[in-house]
Design a protein around this nucleic acid. Sequence first.
DNA 1: GAGCACTGC
Length: 677
Amino acid sequence: MAEEEDPEGPIIPSLYKPPALLPIAQLKEQLLYTIETYPVTIVVGETGSGKTTQIPKFLLEAGWCNTGQQIAITQPRRIACTSVAVRVAEEVGTSVGQKVGYSIRFEDVTSAATQVKFVTDGLLLREMLVDPLLSRYAVIMVDEAHERSLSSDILLSLLKKVLRKREDLRVVVSSATLEAERFLDFLSPDQGEMIHGKSKKDFGYIIGIEGRTYPVEIQYLQEPTNNYIEAAVEAVVKIHEHEPEGDILVFLTGREEIDDAIDMLGDRIAEMSSSQRKLIPLPLYAGLPTENQNMIFTKPPPGTRRVIFSTNIAEASLTIDGIVFVIDSGYVKLRSYNASLGIETLSIVPVSKASATQRAGRAGRTRPGKCFRLYTERAHQELQEATFPELARANLAPVLLQLLNLGITNLIRFDYLSPPPSSLVTRALDLLYSLDALDPYGRLTKPLGTRMAELPLEPQLARALLKATDPEFSCLSEMLSIAAMMTLQGHAFVSHDGGKKQLDAARRRFAVAEGDHLMLYNVYGAFVQAGLGNTAWCREHCLNHKNLVKAVSVRKQLAAHLDRFGIRENVLAAAGEGVLRVGGRPLAERVRRCLATGFFAHAARMKGDGSFTTVDGKTTLWAHPSSVFFNRKADWVVYSEIMEMKGKIYIRDLSAVDMDWLTEYAPEYYKIKNGRR
DNA sequence: GAGCACTGC
């Protein structure tokens, strides 16, 4: 390639300003030159720039796979992998799974012929267990890295290490403008350091690509509002009265707000003249049954305007055609982890500027649009630049377990893109130690720790599952079903027509006095018996068919992992004909004991008023209304999830236990706890 | 007493 293609000469990252943006086709030669020349290329691609589809094609044509290696493009979401793979395969003129394929959990659509592979970032991380240097790839493109998902952050840390070992590897990172320098600086050698004969300034390069979206006019409130739901409905009515045709997308934070807004808008529509009434409100959130979600993708009758009230799902995960107006509340619900209490919190917080920009952009995909922000311009200036990375606010136990399994021993000084607070790291290590996944020296135990790391489950649940084959528990088949159902995170049930009563009645049909885990087990068993394709049965019992099918896949995958460990499910037990009593203990008790071996740290005791307290008696907890213990007596329970919402702490997935079991299965944990008191 | 934003393996 010609020397004069070098676009700007050496760059100084701190002074970097995106050069004039060019459409991707015009940048083909420059992109290929940069990737050839530098180990790291950062692509600043605006929305609709075609980076995800075109860059892999360019690399393929330029012969990057001629040596038999592949090109991997990571995505944070499964849906992106499949849809982009289909499109690129079409453009290349093959069917998916041939030259172009994708690989996501439960679906590997690749073959010996596959050269370009779209993969979720989490799955590529798992692949590193088998192939730590990712030697089968010539180029790895980390797409949407600016979203700062847990997996892509970790992946970048690991790629930094791999780049130091593999001179031939090329890494492409796609990013928003804001983070470009940070990524380049992170992946590059330190000042004065040389890697493969390259110094900081000739290790990487940033390229900007022009987008193909339409301009979006932004409007702010003159005065702040104290009720953004009302303000949103007001804005919808104004747009409907004064603006030309085009659908409206409203960003709110959750289901409750969406339902309220739709009710309020319904009242306003009722007041309108019949010629004005052509306004269709629609809800959109992840928990919505699939058939209702699909209404978003069906064309409305001509002459009508749709108003979609959505959570953050419409910000990046889902694209809706025909949106011309966006109304942005300026808020989002965000999960964070309080390490000192070990409690997750779901709270409503202001969005970042990056989020606000992304939301506004949703109005300009088909023609010029408008975005109405329900806050003042001044408030916007005060927003954080970008959303806090997930790594810095998550429960780190699962990811640390995975890093240990990859041979990374010093987790405190690991080269994180954004180092998490040390309290998060120590809290996670404490938990892993209490679960016997770590020895006193912080090393992964064998085989328990390594097996826990390999299972795609929370560490506590992984431990309980691995304990299920102990003779005193003998409940592997049951624990497999329970673990699979627990990965649905409370989404086994769904109310199809908004009927709360029906939903509660359905839950009661499967409920048992022992608790929620055995209820989930009952649901799983009944579903399998009814038939995997029996959607009518699911509807009748307010069950989410898609999710139950997923549970069946998860169960299969877990069983396959265990099989690899040499742990096999007893076929008789799987058919429900196994030994029901071991040492005089009924099966249900053995399951609850087994759960206690994983969730002993999550114990609580019910008080007279139906609320719970933690073991130290300091914190009041409430059974989530979906629990069988919401209106049923209990003494001690273990739970699998604890979350603070609106100032109240809820526990989910509860099972009744004896206090003695806790001290029996986790003597050290409870000895230490007592010693401290 | 009254309810989970969104992803992923």
